[in-house]
Amino acid sequence: MPHRIACLGGIYSNHLALAQALRDITGRGVDQIVCLGDMGAFGPHPDQVFPLLAEYGVTCLQGNYDDSIGNALDDCQCGYTDERDNYFAQLSYDYTLDNTSDENRRFLRHLPPQLRTEIGPLRILFCHGSPRRVNEFLWQSTTSTAFLQRLAAEQKVDVIAATHTGIKWHRPLPEGRHFVNVGCLGRPENDGRKNVWYTMLEFRDGQLQVEFVPVEYDTHTLVQEMRHERLPDEFMETILSGWWTTCLEILPSKERQRGPH
């Protein structure tokens, strides 16, 4: 029974941050590494993340982006309506689809959407957006505790771990339950810092310990690669500034007020 699980969310083709996180995780020692989906998007050379996931034996789940790329759908299924957000989302999606090999697309297509396991004595459910919908956004400021408690009870689990929003958070729930958004490795989380995050879950001292671990990586090289691939300046600005410049429409008031855009 695992007691220590490292959780990766939203890699968004950031192979440099992924490599750094996996080295760090290996150094700390874990029972399992779980990636909650969205391998591609935003960054350069989408195929480069897959050998790393295989090398480190990462258990992978399917995110909405993986479903889209795997099945060559029309878009990423994030549901933007804003003209500018849609423009950048589509540009990123088309680039990722064009540059993901058939073999990796087959891998994405067959990933499971969820994983149920245990951490210590606690039942845990890993998913991408929410247990009921792969592209449901569970933001800290728009998700009531009562709702999370209901989800956990319906799913008959003690812990729900998700990603999809790109911003980490943790809320202890009544009756010893927890919700954890594990954040993402692909881009900084709109806080003006360049680092990205993974999450370490551990059952210790009779309870779940949640540690958000910052990952510093070579942003300069990533931006060079993005420039070479002619990805938009706005994406590079996010990597270098730590502020989101696109995909802003879906941010609720509190999360959006933290950034300048």
Binding site: G79, D82, R133, E136, F137, T142, P252
Partner: peptide, 10 residues
């Protein structure tokens, strides 16, 4: 709202 689960108009 657009931030809700299926809150984005199609």
């Amino acid at each position: 709202n657009p931030s809700s689960p299926s809150g984005s108009q199609k």
